[in-house]
Design a protein around this nucleic acid. Sequence first.
DNA 1: ATTTAATAGGACATTTTTATCCGATTTAAT
DNA 2: ATTAAATCGGATAAAAATGTCCTATTAAAT
Lengths: 144, 144
Amino acid sequence: MFSKACEYGIRAATYIASQSKLSRRVSLKEIADEIDSPVAFTAKILQQLSRNKIIDSVKGASGGFEISRSQIDHIKLSQIVYAIDGNNVYVGCGLGLKKCNASKPCPVHDKFVQIREDLKNMLENTSLDEMTTGLEVGLTYLKR
Amino acid sequence: MFSKACEYGIRAATYIASQSKLSRRVSLKEIADEIDSPVAFTAKILQQLSRNKIIDSVKGASGGFEISRSQIDHIKLSQIVYAIDGNNVYVGCGLGLKKCNASKPCPVHDKFVQIREDLKNMLENTSLDEMTTGLEVGLTYLKR
DNA sequence: ATTTAATAGGACATTTTTATCCGATTTAAT
DNA sequence: ATTAAATCGGATAAAAATGTCCTATTAAAT
């Protein structure tokens, strides 16, 4: 569905959000540890998220990553997915045709449109804040 | 969503089915040409489909690929996807967790379960025969 | 029997994705 | 000012996916 990079990205942003809600800025190392991801690779992904203004990075000693309270509410999963995987997830043809569309569709065009639309809606309606609610009470997890 | 191999596989199987309905056995070259795929790579995929009894291959002069009439009706897209990509598409965790499940879920577990379930149902309920109906009347396409 | 047209399959090549390493830069604390 | 702790970013490495090439095998036609 998503690339590994995107999966790590969502998990990382979710962890950062959960800690930002506690006013804790977190380091790369802590993030990678808490979401069980390769450290250096995660660094690259955090850079991408930072460049896309999805997370804030602070350089230097006692630096790290954080997300402002207000942003946590209105950043949606769709923004993270778009920043890392682009819009391929919900616009590309299910059978890989370059110019598949309603007027020259592949045999499963309509069926895929439906599923991708559902996925898109889900991603666009799930905020980082919502992602963290289960985490805080130990109902959901970000590793293993 | 699917690997390139799987996309080619679905398109190839669909084309073979459409021609088998006309009692035409088709060659690798013709298939690759009609679905706009790399010839040698397509050969590998057809081998996989053949080993998985999804298509029949006939060696030697005037050989090629075909699907028996009866099979065309009851082969579902899910079988093709499974033969090439395994069941990752609808069982893997959306965030890449190895052991994500209802009792230890990732933050989007329920939402992904829903979407994957829809995808699974769609694949399990779409037969190769259904894939060919639009093709025959020029309503759907397998290339570009 | 020989030739020809086809798939089978192993080895190899290329590209993309995933992952690592290291020096440069920034900033807080001493 | 110096040191220590952190991110940034470029170069490189490893693994996986995609794609190619060549020989072997098969079977029909001559």
